[in-house]
Amino acid sequence: MEQDRSENLNEFNKIVETYVNDIRKIVFSYVKNYHSMEDITQEVFISAYKNLENFRGESSIRTWLLKIAVNKSKDYLKSWHYRKVQLTNWIIKDELVKKDVEGITISNFRDKELANLIMQLPVKYREVIILYYYQGLDTNEISSLLNLSVNTVKTRLIRSRDLVKRRFDF
């Protein structure tokens, strides 16, 4: 009995090591805060461990974990804690901007601008861009992950690309 538990834990540790960076990236794309990202990532793996026996194998482990991460991230964005953190960060950021104009000017590189632009897109467009371009998922996988039709995913990809092109000077 104890040996089975140990084997399961070792197997799960391998899963965590394999997918932790993917989960962190997708969670950060939603919450845009390092500490919250770490907390939510931990919640994702705790939830996955508790429900591993319920995993039916209809998708890959990676897709299943990403789905948990997306749902946990969306739940966090709806929470009061998130709204409170956002207000506090806005106040602090406003004070820092006033003090560090030179630092902001120096960090104004094209790649950073694009990343910031993507992070400013509405969630429904940002999530498909990140899943498609940064996580390497195809439209069918994204469709399954977000519970959307493939056509909706394709439409959101087209619209998000258009938004990026209009806002970003290529």
Rank of each mutant, 00 (worst) to 15 (best):
M1P: 11
D4G: 08
D4K: 11
D4E: 15
E7P: 00
K14D: 11
K14G: 11
E17P: 01
V20K: 15
V20W: 13
N21M: 04
I23W: 07
K25N: 14
F28H: 11
F28G: 14
Y30E: 06
V31L: 13
K32Q: 15
H35E: 14
D39P: 01
E43I: 01
V44D: 11
V44A: 06
I46Q: 06
N51M: 02
N51L: 02
F55G: 01
R56T: 05
R56F: 00
E58I: 00
S59R: 07
R62V: 08
W64G: 04
L66H: 03
K67P: 09
I68S: 07
I68G: 11
V70I: 14
N71W: 09
Y76D: 03
R83W: 04
R83Y: 01
R83N: 08
R83E: 01
V85P: 02
L87C: 00
T88K: 13
L96G: 11
V97R: 15
D100Y: 15
G103A: 12
G103L: 11
T105H: 13
N108C: 12
A115N: 07
Q120E: 14
L121N: 02
P122D: 14
K124L: 07
Y125I: 03
R126T: 05
I130P: 07
Q135P: 10
L137Q: 05
T139Q: 12
N140L: 10
S144H: 12
L146R: 08
S149Y: 10
R159L: 05
S160M: 06
D162F: 08
L163H: 06
V164E: 10
K165N: 08
